[in-house]
Design a protein around this nucleic acid. Structure first.
Lengths: 199, 199
DNA sequence: AACAAAATTGAACACTGTTCAATTATTTTT
DNA sequence: AAAAATAATTGAACAGTGTTCAATTTTGTT
């Protein structure tokens, strides 16, 4: 019973993922998911409290897929190189899965979504935590507080910037490819920290 | 006739602005605007091709209000101070008008809105243009191309970060107030450019 | 005053998320 | 194996969304 329930849940998530990837976030509606999956609208609401919860479940899968890519990275002795590699992988993932990432990013901007679900927030926090480890190697002299702050600002900037990477509006910036956009931000910021904090 | 038409247009925009400011972007619907303004739904569509166009007209007003604040700034001899002042005013405006800014920012993330209207893009471009003037004073040695690139990255980072300033999700970052979040990004980035480009 | 032109209207259409009584399927008990 | 109890699934119905357009009302002209 729980088995079958999970199967339906998984099937819905898989079909929903397919829909989003192929046609975009606007196509992820209860009825279209119902049609595509073969399950009725009511069944969707049996498995998920509402469509927002469905999207959060989807976003957790997205973050897990990103984590998998991070885990494949072979660590270098240089923290700078590692950070650049992380950003590379991050941007690569976002650009390869624009619609899934849009689905994720949009949730953050919804005025209703006062507080993001715990499970989702936990998964999301894993990304900057990875960066932080390398970050700490470079800025040992900084106080714990200062380091955390600087890292948070960097991550927020990269994360929010990621939304623009998958927006047609960015196509004006033809001079610079999108991977380098983020790496320029990263390295300039790191350089600034190094000089301003005299590390 | 054109007079009255403009009056309706202005009245609709004013009421819509009121609605957004008071109740949030979700309350800006054709019917609610119709009720609040006293004009029928059809009249709204007589004045604006669709709700998106209404929102763009609204966003242009928002950018003009921001421009007004910029114009009030007394220029300093230090370009660094001027840039900090601009960011101060920018962040201040965003925080004082969170719902209007949300309305603006959201348009950029809509997958349908392939290309933003020319009039809107022009207004939006005015903001980084202001920053660029001060930016150029500091980084004279940089090539035109390099300067433009660095400036674009900085502005994109600040602009995208602005969306987070008005998101409840950012409340975790209690350590740092939101004004300083952006100024930390600004000054660290400027410091990084200065050292990396040996200016 | 009668006509012509323009502006305004709101019911109607197709869509959205969500609910919940009725149906169907499954499990348990007799 | 049949009957009863329980659980899962359904889709019509409700309230909301953007948008259209024939019918009405208002305005301007002859």
């Amino acid at each position: 019973m729980t088995d079958k329930k999970d199967n339906i849940r998984s099937a819905l998530l898989a079909k929903g993922r397919e829909l989003v990837c192929a046609k975009g976030t606007a196509f992820l509606t209860a009825r279209k998911l119902s049609e595509a999956s073969g399950y009725s609208v009511g069944t969707i609401y049996n498995q998920f409290a509402n469509m927002d919860e469905f999207i959060f479940a989807q976003n957790i899968l997205t973050l897990e897929a990103l984590e998998e890519r991070f885990q494949k990275i072979l660590p270098d002795s240089s923290a700078y190189k590692n950070l650049n590699r992380y950003v590379d992988v991050f941007v690569g993932f976002v650009l390869e899965n624009p619609n899934l990432w849009m689905l994720l990013y949009n949730q953050h901007l919804k005025p209703e979504a006062k507080v993001l679900p715990f499970a989702y927030r936990r998964k999301l926090a894993l990304v900057p935590q990875r960066l932080e480890k390398e970050f700490a190697k470079i800025f040992r002299q900084l106080s714990r507080r200062e380091r955390k702050l600087s890292m948070q600002v960097l991550w927020l900037a990269l994360f929010s910037l990621s939304s623009f990477l998958i927006t047609p509006g960015l196509d004006n910036f033809s001079a610079l490819n999108k991977e380098n956009l983020c790496k320029l931000l990263l390295n300039t910021y790191l350089g600034g920290l190094a000089v301003l904090k005299r590390v």
